[in-house]
Amino acid sequence: MPDINPNTAPALATPAEPHKGSPSLQRQRQRAAFWFLAPMLIALFCVAAWPLMRTIYFSLTDATLSNLYDAKFIGFQNYLQVRELSSGRTIYRGTLVDPDWWNAVWNTVRFSVVSVAFETVFGLIVALVLNAEFKGRGFVRAAILIPWAIPTIVSAKMWGWMLNDQFGILNDILLNLGLISQRIAWTASTETAMKAVLIVDIWKTTPFMALLILAGLQMVPRDMYEAAKIDGIHPVKVFFKVTLPLIRPALMVAVIFRMLDALRIFDLVYVLTPNSSATKTMSVISRENMIDFDKFAYGAAQSTLLFGIIAVFVAAYIWIGKVDLSGEKSR
């Protein structure tokens, strides 16, 4: 996906007839466009396409952190390696049979689906509230921007403190309300760690979702609601029959952006629940192998897999949903 090969570079259209003298306006503009795009394409090639290709290459070698350059090409052994022991037993090794990896895949998928589902519902609610006319709307919109503006690491720390087992305010509130009988170690216990991560992520990203949905809502003409009101249609029905179909494109785009973002989550998990196998995601485990455990090539293989999963997901989503992400067609 991100490779920027010469085919995607602007192709100068050949003119309908051989031109004499000075080049035509369209040609001049296309030539300028080429030079305008070139620096960006080169920059993106250097920081995206090239490193991606190297990552894929490393995933096929036995490179380690200290030995990047003398690495041997070992084919797909980081992914799957089948070995016949002399005793006749076959053993399988590699990422594809690594339970830790599949645990991370499962964690990531679970996290992404649950968080995006909640964010979509909450985002819709917040967007509907912001779309209504009421006093203090500007203030509420400003307020919901705050979680979005706070750096993820800071949110993780803030919530880590609030979710602290002994001194955390959340336990205190829940105890006072009688909802729990003893303090919960939210971030440490395997049962609740994922919940903790979800809570923070939903808190932090619902505003983004709400703003995108709100933009979609504001394109629904107001007369539509008035007409429905005059016809005496129940607001809930109006929502499902009129509003939802109309904001579907905006919603689809918002969901895909959030989904892609969720699938690559790293920082929140890394800081809020360090080293918890209940929350370790694909990004976390790849980096851990690559940098911390000095299994550079193994980590590269895992990140290549993550990339593949996301690429397939995007392709499927665009294909199924016919989402016009680039906005080219709706012009």
């Binding site: 259209a13 993106l44 991606l52 990552t55 490393f58 699938l263 990004s283 590269a300 995007v314 680039s326």
Partner: peptide, 25 residues
Amino acid sequence: FRGRGLLLMTILAVSMFPQIAVLAG
């Protein structure tokens, strides 16, 4: 110009890229 839509999609794809995938490179 030809390929503009594709180029835009590529750029969008890069911005949505899992950063871990380029980490090694």
